[in-house]
Lab assay of single mutants.
Amino acid sequence: MASQGTKRSYEQMETDGERQNATEIRASVGKMIGGIGRFYIQMCTELKLSDYEGRLIQNSLTIERMVLSAFDERRNKYLEEHPSAGKDPKKTGGPIYRRVNGKWMRELILYDKEEIRRIWRQANNGDDATAGLTHMMIWHSNLNDATYQRTRALVRTGMDPRMCSLMQGSTLPRRSGAAGAAVKGVGTMVMELVRMIKRGINDRNFWRGENGRKTRIAYERMCNILKGKFQTAAQKAMMDQVRESRNPGNAEFEDLTFLARSALILRGSVAHKSCLPACVYGPAVASGYDFEREGYSLVGIDPFRLLQNSQVYSLIRPNENPAHKSQLVWMACHSAAFEDLRVLSFIKGTKVLPRGKLSTRGVQIASNENMETMESSTLELRSRYWAIRTRSGGNTNQQRASAGQISIQPTFSVQRNLPFDRTTIMAAFNGNTEGRTSDMRTEIIRMMESARPEDVSFQGRGVFELSDEKAASPIVPSFDMSNEGSYFFGDNAEEYDN
C-alpha cells in the first residue's frame, strides 16, 4: 500500500469516517454492505422474486439502478423543472426478469421514488447511507470498465484509444464523492478537466460571474484530485501550473494530454476495490451473516471469500459463452479491467482472455432483445487465490505491452514486471518541450526514458491461498515475461453508450 500519510484510507472515504482504527473501519464497511443486503432482500420480497430470480444479476442491476435514481437529487430536480413526455419524475423502474413456464419473461416495473427511498433508509437504520449508494455506483463503473473500451470518449477529448488503461471510473457520476474520486484513473480526471476547458473556450461566460466562481472551485478541486494521483514531483508541479492558470485554454489542454500520456509509464495511484452486485450481499445477509459484527474490507480476502460461497446467475444470449460472461463479471467484481492478464489468470486459476476474444456482450439486456431465446446460467466467480488490492500504480518500471492497449494499471499487489510499449508511448511525445512547463516536461520525458521494462514492481508481494486469511504465506508467482498482458488488445469491444 502506498503510505497513507495525511490521506484517509478508502474504507474511511467509503464510510465518510473520520480517523478510525482498522477494526472500526471493518465494522463501518460491514455496516454499509449489510445495509445493501437488507435493502436487496426487501426489494425481492416487494417484487415477489423467487430465490433464483433474486440471484439473477440482471435483476440486481435494475434494483441497484432504481435506488441510485431515487437518490439522484440533481436529476430529480431537473426532471421536475423540465417535464418530458412519458417520463414521470417521481417514478423509477426498469426490467425485471421472471421464469414463467420454463421461459424467461421481461416485466417492466415502476415504483415511486419516495417508496424506494423509504425501503433503502429502513434497511440502513434510517440513514441515507450515501456510502452504500456510492458502492453500487463503483460496481456499475467497474462493470462498464470491463465491458467497454471507451474509444470515442478518448478520441473526443484528444487522447489515444490505446490509453484505455487510464480510464478507470470514466462512467462514474460526478456525485460519487471521495470514494469515487479515489477509483478514477488519470485519464478519467484528464477527460473531465478537458471537457471543462473546452467549454470555457467555447463559452465566454463559463468562468464568469457567480456560476463561474463555482465552476472555478470545481476545476481547482479536480486538479488537486489529479495532482494527488501522480507520484513524481515534476508531474505534480505541472498540475500546479494547470490549476493556477488564470484562464484555462489550449496550453492547459496540451499540458493535460501530455500528463495523461506520461501516466502510461509514470503511473498514478488509483484505488481498486472489489464492489459486488447487491444480489451477492442480499443472500449472505439472508443466511444470517452479520457483516457489521464480522467486519468487512473491500481490499482484502473478504470479497473473494464471499464470491467463493455465492451463487449468481445471468441471462445468456443464444451465441454467448457462459464462461466468457463469467470472466467479464469476475473482472468487474475485482475492479480488474486494466490489470495484467498474466496476473489475473494466476489468481483466477483459469486463463483470462483479452476482451476481443470473449464471445459475450454486456450483462444488460436491451429492451428490444428477444426473450424467447434467452437461457440462463451460473456465473463462475470463484478464484484459485486471493491478493491484496493496490492503491498505487506500482513502481515506475515497465515491460512490453500489446498493440491495442499500451500499458496497464495494476489492481493487485503482486510481484511482476509491468508491461508497456515504450516505443509507441515515446513516439507520441513530439519533443515539444517549450513553453512555461518546459523544464517539467524535459524531466518527465527523462524519467520515462530511463524506466526499464525488466524491473520488478511490488517486490516480494504474492497471492494467498483462500485458507490464508491473515495473509501469512505469500506465494510469489513467476510470469512468462514475453507473454501478452493487455485486456483490450487489438480490440473490438462495443462502445459504451450512456
Rank of each mutant, 00 (worst) to 15 (best):
L172P: 11
L306K: 00
V299I: 12
F230P: 02
E210D: 15
C279V: 13
M191E: 03
D112R: 03
Q415K: 12
G17L: 07
T15H: 14
I365Q: 08
R55H: 07
P410A: 13
I445R: 02
R267M: 11
I475M: 12
M163E: 01
L298F: 06
G462W: 04
E14D: 15
L264R: 01
A271F: 03
F412W: 04
I197R: 00
R106M: 10
G185W: 05
D16P: 00
E434A: 04
A85S: 13
R65A: 02
A387E: 00
I388K: 11
D439E: 14
R65M: 09
I109P: 00
N142R: 04
M66Y: 02
T62V: 13
S359I: 07
G177L: 02
V183A: 15
R305P: 00
M1L: 13
V194R: 00
R38Y: 06
A181V: 04
R243D: 01
V183S: 13
R317S: 11
G132E: 03
T232Y: 08
A146Y: 03
G394R: 10
S383F: 04
R391W: 04
A182W: 09
A493C: 05
P477M: 05
P410N: 04
A323F: 12
A218C: 05
A401C: 09
R221F: 09
A286D: 11
M66K: 12
S310D: 01
M32A: 07
A493L: 13
E454I: 13
L68F: 05
M159A: 06
E11S: 03
M1C: 13
L276R: 02
G209W: 03
G356A: 14
A427V: 13
P303S: 15
Q398D: 00
A286I: 14
A27Y: 15
Y78T: 06
D290A: 12
L133R: 11
P419Y: 02
A146H: 02
A2F: 00
S377V: 02
S326C: 13
M163K: 04
Q405C: 00
P303I: 02
E434W: 01
A284D: 07
S69F: 10
D468G: 11
P248T: 11
I109W: 05
R461S: 00
R55V: 09
A336R: 00
Q241I: 06
L306A: 06
I96W: 07
S413N: 11
S326R: 11
N483V: 02
R317Y: 13
N321T: 06
L166V: 10
L166E: 10
F39K: 02
E244Q: 10
W207F: 13
W330C: 09
S314P: 06
A146V: 14
L68G: 13
F230D: 03
R150G: 10
G126T: 14
R243F: 05
E244H: 01
K470Y: 03
W120Q: 06
L56H: 03
A123V: 14
Q398G: 03
Y296E: 03
R261N: 10
T188A: 13
E320S: 09
L49I: 14
Q405G: 00
L166H: 06
P283D: 00
R8I: 00
S50G: 15
A129W: 01
V190D: 02
M222F: 05
E320L: 04
Y385C: 12
I225A: 03
G187W: 07
T433D: 04
N432T: 11
Y52K: 15
D160V: 07
T15C: 15
S335L: 00
L47T: 13
D240Q: 03
N142P: 07
R156I: 02
V100N: 12
E244P: 04
R156D: 01
I33T: 14
D439I: 06
N319C: 12
A337Y: 09
L259C: 07
I41C: 06
S345I: 09
G86T: 14
V463D: 11
G295P: 06
L256D: 04
E380C: 15
G349M: 07
G393L: 00
I119W: 12
F304V: 06
V285F: 00
H140I: 13
R98C: 02
M331E: 01
K103R: 15
T130M: 07
V329Y: 00
D128A: 03
D88E: 12
N250R: 04
G126Y: 00
G132M: 04
R221P: 04
R389F: 03
N492V: 01
D72N: 12
L466T: 02
S245C: 07
S450E: 10
H324E: 12
T62Q: 05
K198V: 07
E73Q: 11
S297T: 13
D145C: 11
N59D: 13
F412G: 06
H334R: 05
H82T: 15
L259V: 15
R416V: 05
A146E: 08
N59V: 02
Q231V: 04
M371I: 15
T92P: 07
Q122S: 05
T360D: 03
R446H: 03
S262R: 03
